[in-house]
Write a protein that binds this DNA or RNA. Structure first.
Lengths: 375, 375
DNA sequence: CTTGCTTTGAGGTGCGCACATCAATTAGCC
DNA sequence: GGCTAATTGATGTGCGCACCTCAAAGCAAG
């Protein structure tokens, strides 16, 4: 049955060219004849059951005897049956709908995220996939939990949640999973729900990378390093700080990290605090901004010191950090590609919706290091 | 017609939750009813022509009057018609077949590439996409050109070519394009064929990034930098060297680059040459390996100096460079993710085969910087 | 007007699968 | 055996589109 059908691309050993292989395939020329793959009908035949039973097994419908299931599954292995995803998707005629739940904040990285979400919204129009997003106040764990609880399987197939860590949210996500709505923990450092997928970076490693770059940039004479955060309440910030300190202390002992300065996204306040700290520490040789929003602290610092002479490491690629990198106000950026993150979350939700495993390798978000030279 | 059909996901302004939107959609509940998108039939109706004509326009068949084409295209815009790709692919029932043409060489990066190609071969089994690869001697431009010329549209839909730059190969690729076989210039630094897509990095920028890292790592006292290549014949190598020198000379003038050492993949020879150079230059503070194969030169260097004390920058992530990064024999790696490169090439060939534009943003291969901390 | 050509319409078939219905068979149990 | 419940098979329909055939209509030149 199948032997005459799928000969062609079995050969991947790089020994034979396609042309050679083709000649062996009994003179059949037209590609659609040569590569035809086993269909559900072939499967039924091979398993010695009816198409209806094959359908029951494939789609996990009730009332299937263990024996029948075994027969079919064995046959699947044997003939190498793979469902034609196009046919599946056509027959189901289902449109996947995914929701991104993002914090409401004005920071530039979030803007980039939104931009990518919107871009993909259009790009996936043709792809049976519809994307929507919703923003909720950064501290409103209750609101997030409430929104999550209100989602209906009929309306949403999956949610990517970027939210503050909180037991309420965790529970809400767990309940979503029980209702078979897929959940992706998106770029947020909450204590992870192991049943849900996570898209994002290891923040300890990100902080450590920042530390290494800081050490490489700051020179070999003793100096102090300012660490600036929007808030140190979040797990993300804490882990980055831990990673940063670890590397500085162990590999660059001539550098001293100052206590974290928290800006709380308040521009005036940042100015004041930074001016005070810089006045009190004339030997600052590095600045590390560990929150996603680098603009406010860097502009504040620029008013007090010459950024060109001290090492500056920040997080996230934004129009601002990109420009600052170019004109040497910033020396290095630790980034996680927002476009990749969004696409990854969508791919994962799609795969889960189809009960497939996502390709782990592709979905791993890397900690990127950006210099002026590799922008 | 359509107004009642596709209301749901128009709202992306993050103001409304899905539930709210749903309530407005006239009480229809089942998702497949709510989101039904306009079909070709709707298109025909909207355009005031027959389904046959719509088909003719969509698939660019002959014998269509300009007027009819206009009618259809206008209607497409008006009602937002997008072909259901699943239905298209099912009806065409076409399997895409792509060939990777890679150099025959034992280096570790190529091994990684092959691994990813083989991985995707399996992963795409279900996806109407079959991948094969073929290897040809690194210098055999004639062989490459000959193989390319022998390809038949019936057998191959696209080729990703990683081959030495040569007019023969360029011409062969141009002829392939004329025969409507898609071509991707894959990780190779030939003077580009502008009509064909390119997957890979900017090697000047890669060399510049290496230079910056070298400067950051090598310290502030004067020193020499060894530059090691497999060969300086290829454009890749030349561009990397140029980028490297540019940064070193302009930003780190206390460092001096030595002339390139060519290993020609010959282990014994590398040992000798490097020993001689290291003996003649006691003040080497950095080593830059600009070819894809870092193992041979690094092992050779390890026999002559203490790699822990000098700055080492190499290219490409392989099991070897990864391990060497961990145990501090190497300080930084400039990498282009082979998995991403392979997937990107495949996505581009698929998009081109369907006469779609690939998503530029997604297909850009980044110059990654790897430190011990962000592996 | 006829001849020959282009353009349009109408209709059918099939891609591979999901899903539904109904009848037929089998198994479990008293 | 007789009963119910679980399990199978047979069969049909439709998803949205590509591709094909044939007939009808339009159009131009002679």
């Amino acid at each position: 049955m199948r032997t005459s059908k799928q000969v062609i691309f079995e050969v991947r050993t790089s020994i034979l060219a396609f042309a050679d292989v083709l000649k062996e395939s009994s003179g059949r020329r037209k590609s659609w004849e040569v590569v035809m793959r086993p269909t559900a009908k072939d499967l039924a035949e091979a398993a010695g059951v009816s198409l209806a039973t094959v359908d029951r097994v494939l789609n996990e419908r009730p009332n299937v005897s263990p024996k029948a299931a075994r027969l079919v599954n064995d046959a699947i292995e044997r003939i190498g049956f793979v469902r034609n995803p196009a046919a599946v998707s056509l027959a189901r005629n289902k449109v996947y709908r995914f929701l991104f739940l993002l914090p409401a904040s004005g920071d530039l990285y979030l803007k980039e995220l939104l931009r990518h979400v919107e871009e993909l919204t259009d790009a996936l129009k043709g792809d049976l996939t519809e994307i929507a997003y919703r923003q909720i106040g950064i501290d409103d764990a209750h609101g997030v939990a409430k929104l999550l609880s209100s989602l209906d399987k009929e309306e949403v197939d999956g949610v990517a949640v970027m939210a503050p860590e909180s037991p309420q949210v965790r529970d809400a996500m767990a309940r979503l999973l029980q209702r078979n709505i897929k959940v992706v923990q998106f770029l947020s450092g909450q204590e992870k729900l192991p049943e849900a997928d996570f898209v994002g970076i290891d923040n300890f490693a990100a902080g450590a990378s920042a530390g290494k770059l800081m050490g490489m940039l700051a020179g070999s004479h003793p100096g102090k390093v300012m660490v600036i955060a929007e808030t140190m309440q979040s797990l993300d910030s804490i882990q980055r700080r831990l990673g940063f300190d670890h590397v500085i202390n162990s590999a660059f002992p001539h550098l001293t990290c100052l206590p974290s300065i928290e800006t709380h996204a308040d521009e005036a306040r940042s100015q004041q605090v930074m001016a005070r700290v810089l006045a009190g520490n004339r030997d600052v040789s590095g600045i590390y901004v560990l929150s996603a929003e680098a603009r406010v602290p860097i502009l504040a610092a620029a008013g007090n010191v010459d950024l060109g002479t001290i090492a500056v490491v920040v997080h996230e690629r934004t129009p601002f950090t990109e420009q600052a990198l170019r004109d040497d106000r910033i020396d290095a950026v630790i980034a996680q590609d927002p476009g990749h993150a969004v696409r990854s979350a969508i791919r994962i939700m799609r795969a889960r919706s189809d009960a497939r495993e996502p390709l782990a390798a592709q979905e791993k978000i890397r900690i990127e290091i950006l210099l002026k030279e590799n922008l």
